[in-house]
Design a protein around this nucleic acid. Structure first.
Lengths: 251, 251
DNA sequence: CCCAATTTGTTCGTATGTATA
DNA sequence: TTATACATACGAACAAATTGG
């Protein structure tokens, strides 16, 4: 654990509660890289002294980040910056299951990885200017050997300096894990918009379908810790034998 | 506010924290109808005395039910049993928006309401026996005058004794609001499974589409307070000019 | 296997701030 | 203005889980 020093928060309480200010300070340490994924935080008593708040207030701040899955607490061990493991992303961001409902991890085949300039749609979704440098990745996902999903992914190059095709192809785990450990970009949530469309010739070729067959098209904008868009992804899903699963829980 | 009496919880702490026991006691009062939607709870100090716990513990119990949208707290006013208003359901359970992203409330047209026996799929989804009595409702939803969604709804008759076609047709608000105020059935979450399919002749007729056009098919199981299925609904969505919106947030 | 140290989890009680009626 | 109710903050004590000796 890196021995960090947090400044006391006398807090300009501009209507803002103290525990929220503490939470933002912790978040800032993570965003700026002073705390990396997997790092342990100092214990609650020490953190409370550093910030100059009570243990209860410190706990309430940590509660918020735990609820957002940014921190992870384990009784008897400590508090850690969440690591985006294979399983974590499987459950949070991969919604496709077989009709029988079995959760399977997809086998990912990266087709290519190129550089380009953002078109109008990409710029709008990513909140950048049209023509800004972007990286594009195309994936084909297999479940039980069958090609089911075709992904076209677009990343703002500014956030991923030094990302090469080799690093994408050689990644040991998911893309989101690579974003986090390689570039400090942590995806915490995503907004998806779904439509049923007739399959394009390009997608039909990649998935081995007849052009015009009904397929599910998913437009995803993935958001980072600060709520900024970090990825725009268009997925085409063959739902002949699979489904997209959504849980409508209280916000 | 009904003057309720909660028994002190000496709690068989079978590993279970006190605040969870308090939360379940409150939930029980709601499920059993002692507390109805919209009712105010006694203030925190009084509730804490009734339960024989500290205010902090009582607050932590209420925190859980507030997070689940079962209770609603308002500073300076009190704590209330959540009412499923038009707006509440709009945001939690109606996911269809126009391509431009405008949130609109749909105009609902109820086509018919009949009685029958559960087929195999309905029985499985609702967790009841095949052949058990069910109610079926068919709706057509319009957005800006255009027919966009066709719903086939199936309810276990056991949970909705006394539900007549007239009550369905004359409901002042949403179906879920009718479930709650009329039958004490509160929908708190739902699980949906989505596929892109070729439009059936039946759905094509209702929505005014060409049979075979790609449409989004949504299978929803709505769950009550205790997690039991209370409704099974198959929606067919014309996504030519609309989208299904999903937010992937940390669980 | 047990013991002790460490760390988070739960519970208590109190005081003060803020929104509402 | 006053009273009420929830929101925030403090500090203390004990319980439960983990780790290492």
């Amino acid at each position: 654990m890196p021995d960090m020093n947090f400044a006391p928060i006398h807090a300009a309480p501009a209507g803002q509660p103290l525990y929220k200010a503490v939470a933002r300070a912790l978040l800032g340490a993570i965003e700026s890289g002073q705390l990396k994924a997997g790092d342990a935080l100092a214990n609650e008593g020490e953190l409370a002294r550093d910030f100059g708040v009570s243990v209860g207030t410190l706990r309430k701040a940590v509660d918020e980040l735990v609820a957002a899955q940014i921190l992870l607490r384990q009784q008897g061990r400590g508090t850690f910056v969440a690591t985006h493991t294979r399983d974590r992303f499987l459950f949070q961001f991969f919604q496709v299951q077989s009709l029988e409902g079995a959760k399977e991890f997809p086998q990912v085949e990266t087709l290519d990885c190129t550089r380009g300039k953002a078109d109008e749609a990409e710029a709008h979704k990513l909140g950048i200017r049209q023509g800004e440098a972007v990286l594009r990745i195309r994936n084909r996902l297999h479940l039980r050997g069958a090609a089911v999903v075709y992904d076209r992914i677009c990343l703002p190059a500014r956030l991923f300096k030094g990302l090469t095709e080799k690093r994408v192809l050689d990644r040991p785990s998911t893309l989101y894990h690579l974003y986090q450990v390689g570039f400090g970009v942590t995806v915490v949530r995503a907004q998806e918009r779904l439509r049923a469309v007739a399959c394009s010739r390009e997608a039909a070729r990649v998935l081995g379908l007849a052009a015009g067959a009904p397929v599910l098209q998913v437009h995803r904008v993935a958001l980072g810790l600060n709520g900024q868009p970090v990825e725009y992804r268009v997925s085409t899903v063959d739902t002949a034998h699979h489904e997209y699963v959504s849980d409508l829980s209280p916000a």
